[in-house]
Amino acid sequence: MCRSSRATSIILVLGLLMVSPSISVAEESRYGLGLLVGEAAIKAWDIDVNPTGIGLPPGRGTVQQGAIIYENKCAACHGPTGIEGPKDRLVGGQGSLTTAQPIKTIGSYWPYATTLYDYIFRAMPFTAPQSLTSDEVYALVAWLLHQNGIIPKDAVMDARTLPAVTMPNRGGFVSDPRPDVPIH
């Protein structure tokens, strides 16, 4: 027992010696929980797209292609032209934000075109989220941006063109100024 205990100690010391050169101060406080995850596994879940376009996958889509996909997979909830509903209105409303009846749509409110790709892929169609191909999402984004008068009819959306689209309400957001209500 004594010998095996000593052997264990030697193994432990050797193990520490082998590992310690690469341990930083921060690492020493770790609990040793969790498993390292590889690039392929990360990629399977890493679906976000940020405003610089990082995260946009290969693929492309046109306004015309988007019109057909929209009619088949989106119009039942958002209306034939993106205005009628019954779910969120997607088109129009530009210039309405300061009126008595603000209409928040992609065209009037959304500050980044990349958010369209991110959201449509992650959460739409409502009954089958994350079922669309990248070509389908690019096409839908193209159609929606065209319907809102933001890109021309012959525009093609892909990982290069989409982040370059400037949305009408890009300058419409400010940081949190609270507390903002005077004490009465």
């Binding site: 976000d48 992609i106 958010t115 400010v174």
Partner: peptide, 20 residues
């Protein structure tokens, strides 16, 4: 990352047309 839930939603529209 400017997701939909922090741009299109959960932003506060003010009378001047700007959103917090």
């Amino acid at each position: 990352f400017m997701t939909r839930e922090e741009t299109s939603r959960y932003t506060d529209l003010m009378p001047d047309g700007k959103s917090r």
